[in-house]
Amino acid sequence: MKKVIFTLLCFAFVLTASANNTPKEGDILTVKTPTAQGFNHVDFPKANILIKRGVVTNYKSVNNETVVIDKIETEANGSTTVTLKKKDGSKFFGFLNTVKANYTKAINSGELVLTK
């Protein structure tokens, strides 16, 4: 009987934890620069595009930047893609109004952090 109650409690905890991982429009996130060269799950432009535009090729300008979820799209395979805008209304790298990101992968990898 103890095992059944313990299993039910664990199942309820898992359901509660996964329910909090759904994005909503207007949620505020923070962009964290990964330790690798570039972003894998946030669709920022590659370094060669930034060089052509005359922008410095590091991603320090987006580190700790506060962004807001503007639009949410759910794919047929179940992945969730969100469109992000800067909270202050300025542009990313001086020319991008919005960027897209795979929400669950970006949150799990630490590229995006949910701000409360």
Rank of each mutant, 00 (worst) to 15 (best):
K2N: 15
K2G: 15
K3R: 14
K3E: 10
K3M: 04
K3Y: 10
V4A: 11
I5Q: 15
I5E: 15
L8H: 14
L9V: 13
C10M: 15
A12T: 14
V14S: 07
T16N: 04
A17C: 10
A17D: 14
S18G: 07
S18Y: 14
P23E: 10
E25D: 05
E25A: 03
G26I: 02
G26R: 06
G26K: 05
T30H: 08
Q37L: 10
F39A: 05
F39L: 09
H41F: 15
H41Y: 15
V42H: 01
V42Y: 01
D43S: 13
F44E: 01
F44V: 03
A47I: 11
A47H: 10
A47N: 10
N48W: 14
I51Y: 01
K52D: 08
K52M: 12
K52L: 12
K52N: 11
K52V: 12
R53A: 12
G54P: 05
V56S: 11
V56T: 13
N58P: 07
K60D: 14
S61G: 02
V62I: 08
V62M: 03
N63L: 07
N64W: 05
T66Y: 00
V67C: 02
D70Y: 06
D70P: 01
D70N: 09
K71Y: 01
E73P: 00
E73Y: 10
G78K: 06
S79Y: 09
S79Q: 11
S79M: 09
T80E: 04
T81Y: 06
T81G: 09
V82I: 15
V82G: 02
L84E: 03
L84T: 00
K86F: 01
K87T: 08
K87M: 07
D88T: 00
D88W: 01
F92L: 03
F93N: 08
G94F: 04
G94K: 07
F95I: 04
L96K: 08
N97I: 08
A101D: 03
A101Y: 03
N102F: 02
T104Y: 04
K105E: 14
K105R: 15
I107T: 05
N108E: 14
T115S: 14
K116I: 05
